[in-house]
Design a protein around this nucleic acid. Structure first.
Lengths: 184, 184, 184, 184
DNA sequence: GATGAATGAGGCTTCATTCAT
DNA sequence: CATGAATGAAGCCTCATTCAT
């Protein structure tokens, strides 16, 4: 059943958010997800495998949301803004995801993790389009997308960790600043 | 002896960089630092205390470097640039520090960690000056400093994790973009 | 179906030979035998029961082979030799059997295992005949048969574990030595 | 302290004799030896390593006893007899050792276990001397020593497992039979 | 201050067994 | 009969921490 797998994912996200990777034990996880300890090992080879699968699961959701939201007929400015807000709200809607994501990305697990390149490519491809259209500054698109992503994460951390209120206007300001900096 | 304490810090940084917080055991650390397991407990109350002290140690170094480098007689533009580069090179010179720092900042340890406010204040104070001088956009200085810091971290991750080459020109570009976005 | 039961026996023998009793898990066994985990429990009450049944199965085969090969009209010397060779080749033909057998016989399972007496009786009866005929030395037949069996096992271990080549002549030598020792 | 290591060895021998290798858990062992679970891992890398060390420990004792007992000035017949009895009594004095030994020797651990060759060499060297003296039948000394050893083990199993009484006379008979078979 | 053997709770994982399908 | 997902007790081992020396 996919149900149990999902319950494990949900519980993992919640517990890891609260206690961190290693602060979350498999037995805790099992209890929280209402499954037996052994059951987790039907779905995942190990704790590490489970964590990687969880990350993949989240990234897939995010990329799919981004793709389904994107519309190439819109102006690049608008696509830029939608993309920024899409990532932002993705995490606002799943408040436990960011901490997990950041922990994962800075952990040894992430080293040589295959999904990584896919994500980076997804974003740098977008900015390459902007460069090709003569709108975005002609710099390494990996660098551009790194900064773009960095600004979303910064805003999210402000909002989720430090509880700084961010109005829609604030978001537009941030996006505007980012846009102003990245365009010719 | 301060010598042993430093050896512990150095080894911790190295091991945590490679294996993560919890992938690094106290006995491993002791062995790597050439001290007995018990010795670590003369200097630190617990593993957590040691990690927090390590973070404090790094932050103190960074803040001191920033303070000693800053010069209020220079133009704000130049101070902005120096500050950005100072943080950047601080980590380039200590390549193991970033991973530790990011792990720490995204860990449960960081929750309610007193040093946190100090750092944030240090940075937002700087930007408040820029706002007061009518140079920086009049937005929440915490937000501004969050984005500023985010761009340094993004650049560092590109350089240190993804091995993207960043020339001095690239750095100037990034700073320029950031400045362009944040100023009126 | 007897087919599946046999597949389980065959796989058990193979896996136990390689990994030992407890190194062989029921799910491994199920996979190797191409049956579901639960299926094994239709045929056997437990792992231990399965192992005992496997032993019984092997012993029955051996005893049957011995009985059908024996011919009371032959000289005792010849019967002795045939019997020795029969056991020897039984294991040579089933190279995985010896290790299982030896593990079983030296395991706690064997303690109070009913089949045990049957086997011992089977052999000591044979030697009692030799004693009664005035050919075999008049000592405790259990002792005689123990030594007899010991020499076959020794030869088998040399051949199967230590890969010592044993020619037909070698076998005859061993049998000859054994015979010489046991007869008046 | 060597004391604790010895306590672990003693307990292991006792428990393995009763419950088998895998029937003996590390926590059981710890409890029985009056040490903490972790302590075992100061002395041995793993359960397997502990078992191998135990075997080595026993073999070393046996070989030392054999060596110190042997006297090249005696007749080969007498050395043969002393050697046989030495092994026999070694196990009679340590009744838990045989079951452990036999389990070990038939386990996957024994595969490619370095000590193995040493023991075999020790024994075949002895018989080579007998062959060179023209007393022992001129066959592969490994074969001879295998049969020799097999007869001791057989006698021991009779005595220890099956509780067959073996008088000094019985032992002399067995040795005599073995000698008769192996000599010219 | 320094050592490192010892502790024992607790972590990850396995595995014999069951049971609804 | 057969399946294989699910169970949860129990196994091996690690590790932060202590304490006698």
């Amino acid at each position: 059943m996919v149900e149990k797998k999902q319950a494990i994912f949900d519980s993992a996200l919640e517990l890891i958010n609260e206690c961190g990777f290693h602060g979350t034990s498999m037995s805790q996880l099992a209890k929280h997800a209402n499954v037996a300890a052994g059951t987790i090992y039907h779905y995942f080879e190990s704790k590490e495998a489970m964590i990687c699968a969880l990350h993949t699961n989240i990234v897939d959701q995010l990329l799919e949301t981004l793709t389904s939201t994107d519309d190439k007929n819109l102006s690049f400015r608008l696509r830029f803004e939608k993309r920024w807000k899409c990532i932002f709200h993705f995490h606002i809607d799943r408040p436990q995801t960011l901490r997990f994501y950041e922990q994962f990305v800075n952990s040894p697990f992430y080293f040589n993790y295959p999904k990584r390149k896919e994500i980076q490519l997804y974003f740098s491809t977008f900015f390459q389009e902007g460069i090709d259209e003569g709108i975005i500054i002609n710099k390494n698109p990996e660098m551009i997308s790194g900064l773009f992503f960095g600004s979303v994460i910064s805003a999210l951390k402000m909002r989720l960790y430090r509880k700084v209120e961010l109005t829609e206007e604030d978001l537009n300001d941030i996006i505007g600043m980012q846009w102003k900096g990245m365009t010719l």
